[in-house]
């Protein structure tokens, strides 16, 4: 449906996008994930034809965006990062303009405007000036604009930025419903959004794709190991003996003594091999009181952090696959960092 090949965009000396290639199949919701400045918006702008790439090609339904821009753009509805609204118009007038520009006329135009207004829930503000609308409504007018003309592909660049939590939930709901009829590409740096809404995730960092997979596959691929945390009520010495016996079960074992006198053991294990019951019986045997056993699984957040960390992309001369491998090995570092702190506060989401 969309085929992006070796896209490169440089601004003067700075390369914002360095050779991105991917394909988009119909009927799915794609998530474009990456930290700020990773090249998400640039890539989307190039796909939609609002920016020219330095090299590389974009083909939409067989139409090259440069050779046949009109045909290609007819297949796309685009909401840029800053909703492109004429603030001195009302939503009705604005949608009328966009609809006409997309080639709709007469009854069809009126019908579609009603339909998208209904879907985005802006019918009640149709005759107020856009400049007087709240950020949430402006965003919705932007989405309504992208939906007009019933394009096969809808591309939304950070559609939930600056909205309140209720609006965010509503917009996500809307995007999910869009996904039933259209192919949706959604960019965000908010992980929960991507994991809630998208089927497929493309992670971009420093202008390169570092992961491109189904959400479920991605989780499986990068969360093969987990960490089991044991909180114990015992002396340090007792803990050491216990840890020795437990180390045989796990891949890796670390011990900590807490300030309040309790002890903590972190066991790293492969998820394919569940060690919980074995650990439990070992602890029981030793006669130590176990206060808690907490399995820590890697979330999309950890995957994201490890893939987009500077270590992962530092080795830029290596090709993409190696980059991913590097990132996987860098996981361990982030993991141990995470374990050092008691309360792991998510950085994103």
């Amino acid at each position: 449906m969309i085929e992006v090949k070796d896209l490169v965009k440089s601004y003067g000396g700075h390369k914002a996008v360095r050779g991105i290639s991917f394909t988009v199949e119909s009927g799915k919701i794609y998530g474009f994930l990456g930290p700020n400045g990773a090249g998400k918006s640039t890539t989307m702008n190039i796909i939609c034809g609002t920016l020219a790439s330095t090299s590389g090609s974009v083909t939409i339904n067989g139409h090259d965006i440069y050779a046949e821009p009109i045909e290609a753009k007819k297949c796309i509805g685009y909401l840029p990062e800053i909703p492109p609204l004429y603030t001195d118009m009302t939503p009705a007038e604005y949608l009328d303009f966009v609809g006409r520009a997309k080639g709709l006329r007469g009854a069809e135009l009126a019908e579609q405007i009603e339909e998208v207004m209904e879907l985005t829930d802006i019918a009640n503000v149709r005759s107020r000036l856009i400049k007087n609308l709240s950020k949430g409504y402006k965003q919705r007018v932007g989405i309504a604009q992208a939906m007009l003309g019933d394009p096969e592909i809808i591309i939304l660049d950070e559609p939930t930025v600056g909205l309140d939590p209720i609006q965010i939930i509503e917009i996500r709901e809307l995007i999910r419903s869009l996904g039933k009829k259209h192919t949706v590409i959604l960019s965000s740096h908010i992980l929960t959004e991507i994991s809630e809404v998208c089927d497929h995730v493309i992670i971009i960092s420093h202008g390169k794709i570092v992961a491109n997979d189904k959400l479920s596959d991605l989780e499986e691929k990068y969360t093969s190991d987990g960490v089991l945390e044991l909180q114990l009520k015992c002396s340090a010495k007792e803990m050491e003996t216990l840890a020795e016996s437990l180390a045989k079960l796990a891949e890796d074992c670390e011990t900590f003594v807490e300030k309040d006198g309790t002890c903590r053991i972190m066991l790293k294990y492969l998820r394919a091999n569940d060690i919980r019951s074995a650990v439990y019986s070992q602890v029981c045997k030793s006669g130590i009181t176990m206060l808690a056993m907490i399995p820590h699984e890697k979330t999309l957040e950890d995957i994201f952090l490890s893939l987009t960390s500077d270590d992962a992309v530092a080795d830029e001369t290596v090709d993409e696959k190696n980059d991913v491998a590097d990132a996987a090995s860098a996981d361990e570092d982030t993991d141990s960092n995470k374990d050092d702190g008691d309360d792991y506060k998510p950085l994103f989401g």
Binding site: N45, G49, T50, E71, P80, P84, L85, Y86, A101, G103
Partner: peptide, 14 residues
Amino acid sequence: HQRTDQLLYSLPLK
């Protein structure tokens, strides 16, 4: 200035 040019470029207009 208002970034509405992005809309014009993304619409099927020459």
